[in-house]
Design a protein around this nucleic acid. Structure first.
Length: 452
RNA sequence: GGCGGGUUGGCGGAGAGGUUACGCAGCGGAUUGCAAAUCCGUGUAGACCGGUUCGAUUCCGGUACCCGCCUCCA
């Protein structure tokens, strides 16, 4: 199966050929652990999880190395610690655990490696020393800065030129910078901030160097795929490329750069000021199953803005409920080739879901289950939410008896009364010649049946 | 100002230079005491203006509008 991916580096959809098919290597920028993951954080996690699953399917489960980091040194974390009085270690440990729990709840598999930045300080220092030695960086006043003018290709990924950006004039000008565009590799820490000893004094790394150091340590100087949200393209990924290529003396850092588009909520950017900001955990606590969140995320192609709406969640839940009932107790068959082919075409998850609809309509249940599982849907881990614990046999008998009586008397008022009460309590009422079938729905509320 | 993405039927949302996307909703029918569920049928949409072509919603150019990034952000 030939994968095709839209490479941000070339801005084209092109065939994907791994450097080493025995070890396909992917790095995705993970979260800065200072707070609960919001819904937008879940998008790349889910998108690249599907890619991870697809790569495993195509190249073999043991032939894919997926790295997603945790950034546990950052000024946002420091600020959170200062304002809450808690230790940095507490905050990052707790937030890391939350992230893993929340991502698991939406069906995201754990990557092979999940490095924490603070475990790679020595590698970062070594990389920075190398950059200085080669003339790509300079130390000044306890800072080390990357000399952007020394790297001719700077800006190539995001399509910017250094001169244009300076003309935009929104860059931080600092006295220790040779050039306004130079960015920080290392900065000094005061005693109250986390810091590590280095050739430039006690300090901490800049934002971008961690990814370069961890990617090199775990995946090598050049690897296959580097992913993340498209807001990271500049400056984060641009700076990663500059650091890695200059330090490693390579033409490229990654063969393919993939960027997912942003998430919106009811047509607007998710923001605290608009009051439409929420976390994955908020949705889960509202009773929206993680599988529904995942389905909605995958129903829009990753390169398009994804709009989260309550209506989509409702539709997704109905679809998943139907499919889960179909595949219940049935073993997955072979993964349908048509679905793999759709997914292989630049991760067309929306097209793959359409293929699932086709399989469901055709009654090809084992294929439906296998295909859904490749997308991380209809899995055992994400199941359970559709099963409502309720014994309604008493109600069914009562309704059936009333119905038999009504058939004779032609007075259906009691039947209609019972049916209305059951419907109001969230029960689906199915009456046929064979009898009465009651199916408790998602919002079943036994309390509403009391006294009927 | 610079860079990038988008505009498809009531809504969501794909693919493909010419033949039904698909889902939801709606409508018609079967079924039902009435419903629900299910099944069958039903929709000729692609911002605007040009160009290429026998033929474009699909390729090219332009216009308009929307969105994101350029500052921490996934």
């Amino acid at each position: 199966m030939q994968l095709r991916l839209t490479n941000s580096r070339t801005r084209k959809k092109e065939p994907f050929t791994p450097l080493d098919p025995q070890n396909v290597r992917m790095y995705v920028c993970g979260p800065t652990v200072y707070d609960r993951a919001h819904l937008g954080n879940a998008r790349p996690a889910i998108v690249f999880d599907v890619l991870f699953r697809l790569l495993r399917h195509v190249y073999g489960a043991d032939h894919v190395t997926y790295v997603r980091n945790f950034t546990d040194v950052d000024d946002k974390i420091n600020a959170r610690a200062a304002e809450s009085g808690r230790s940095i270690g507490d905050i990052t440990a707790e937030t890391t655990r939350w992230y893993l729990e929340d991502m698991a709840a939406v069906g995201v598999m754990e990557p092979i490696h999940m490095p924490r930045a603070t475990a790679y300080i020595a590698e970062m220092v070594a990389m920075i020393e190398g950059l200085i030695a080669k003339g790509f960086a300079y130390a000044k006043e306890g800072h080390v800065l990357f000399r952007v003018r020394a790297f001719a290709r700077y800006g190539a990924l995001s399509g910017r030129s250094v001169d244009d950006m300076i003309a935009g004039a929104r860059v931080e000008v600092a006295p220790f910078k040779e050039d306004p565009m130079d960015f920080v590799l290392w900065k000094p820490s005061s005693d109250d901030l986390p810091g590590w000893d280095s050739p430039w004094g006690r300090g901490r790394p800049g934002w971008h160097i961690e990814c370069s150091a961890m990617a090199k340590a775990l995946l090598g100087d050049v690897f296959d795929i580097h992913g993340g949200g498209n807001d990271l393209m500049f400056p984060h990924h641009e700076n990663e490329i500059a650091q890695s290529c200059c330090a490693n003396g390579t033409e490229r850092m990654a063969q393919v750069w993939l960027h997912n588009e942003m998430l919106q909520v009811e047509g607007k950017k998710m923001s605290k000021s608009l009051g439409n900001f929420f976390t994955v955990r908020d949705l889960l606590d509202q009773g929206i199953p993680g599988e529904v969140i995942r389905f909605v995320m995958l129903s829009t192609h990753y390169r398009k803005p994804m709009d989260w709406t309550a209506e989509k969640a409702r539709e997704a839940e109905a679809t998943l409920r139907k499919w889960r009932a179909m595949v219940d107790g049935i073993a997955a068959g072979a993964v349908p080739e048509a679905l793999v082919a759709t997914l292989a075409d630049d991760l067309n998850t929306a097209g793959a879901i359409a293929e699932l609809h086709r399989l469901a309509a055709a009654g090809e249940v084992p294929a439906l289950k296998a295909g859904a599982e490749l997308l991380g849907l209809l899995t055992e881990e994400l199941g359970g939410w559709d099963e409502v614990e309720a014994d309604l046999s008493g109600w069914a008998d009562r309704l059936a008896a009333a119905r038999v009586a009504a058939m004779a008397s032609r007075d259906f008022s009691e039947v209609d009364r019972l049916k209305a009460a059951l419907l109001a309590a969230g029960v689906e009422v199915r009456m046929s010649k064979q009898g009465v079938d009651l199916v408790p729905g998602a919002c079943f509320d036994a309390a509403k049946l009391e006294g009927v």
